[in-house]
Design a protein around this nucleic acid. Sequence first.
DNA 1: CGAGAAAAGTTGAATGTTCAACTATTGTCG
DNA 2: CGACAATAGTTGAACATTCAACTTTTCTCG
Lengths: 160, 160
Amino acid sequence: MAEKNATAPKWLNPSEMKAWRQYIIASRRLLDALDEDLAAHDLSMADYEVLAQLSDAPDRTMRMSELAEVAMVSRSRLSHRIKVMEREGWVRREACPNDKRGSLAIMTPKGWKAIVAAAPDHVASVRSRFLDVLDKGDQKALAEIFERVATRIKDIDCDE
Amino acid sequence: MAEKNATAPKWLNPSEMKAWRQYIIASRRLLDALDEDLAAHDLSMADYEVLAQLSDAPDRTMRMSELAEVAMVSRSRLSHRIKVMEREGWVRREACPNDKRGSLAIMTPKGWKAIVAAAPDHVASVRSRFLDVLDKGDQKALAEIFERVATRIKDIDCDE
DNA sequence: CGAGAAAAGTTGAATGTTCAACTATTGTCG
DNA sequence: CGACAATAGTTGAACATTCAACTTTTCTCG
């Protein structure tokens, strides 16, 4: 849990509140819109992320736990999702040769076709719904801010 | 679906990519962390939002559809969630006096106690995980950017 | 070596969310 | 008025996610 800082006021001031609310509202709408756009390809954002990461890996092959890590989903969730992707014929599993506990997720040609079909639309959608309203300076500022946010979260959760 | 702009390149350039990835990664981690923090009060972010909005309404009472709107959840989802909150004794439902189709969600004293207990921790958590890494300028920049994002999404989805 | 801790992955059950269908009421307008 | 469209809300079934338990294998270190 977050440390309570003795000097921090209990409630947010108007400027903090505005930043937080605008962020949370726009993020919700943005993710919803991107999900809707992806639905045309029968994909959710989470499934897209999994397939995109897998398609980027050498031989389009990855250890389950590594894939879970980079796609930011739990192992359990990945396991369940891969099961349905297997049924769709997008991915297959193979035993890991050097670690007998392990399991490899391997993208099939059909899976490759699916991600290749979805990617341009998804990129266009990210562009039109998000990037198009940012100029170069905004891009840089945003990247810096969220890099700090991610770092901060890692720091808090490591020493508690 | 997003319009395809003839001049837009198919892929993201490094600066766009960085802004997008940092945003999506940090957001995921941030929301996860806030959810974990709220778990101490047996709440998800979505449930917190519902209760917070309801607690702000006159008489802590709201029409279901209005509550769904401001809490950014579907009507169906709200209906299901309110059912479990009713079981917890946090909310009760009452028929809407002037519109016989309608239904009012009313926060109980127990529900008020729950949100009052959770709110300071949640605010502290938003602060320490997010706001603390923003200076005044960042706050303003972020609010402006995400206001544009939200507006853009509304605009796209209205004329298509 | 070998005991116990840690890591990888899966599973089933419980819980949460979406989706489409449905009832009931209200609004619109010829 | 009265037919039809639109709105409010709920429901159950299908689907997705989480959670804790479990198996198997590997790592650590006395």
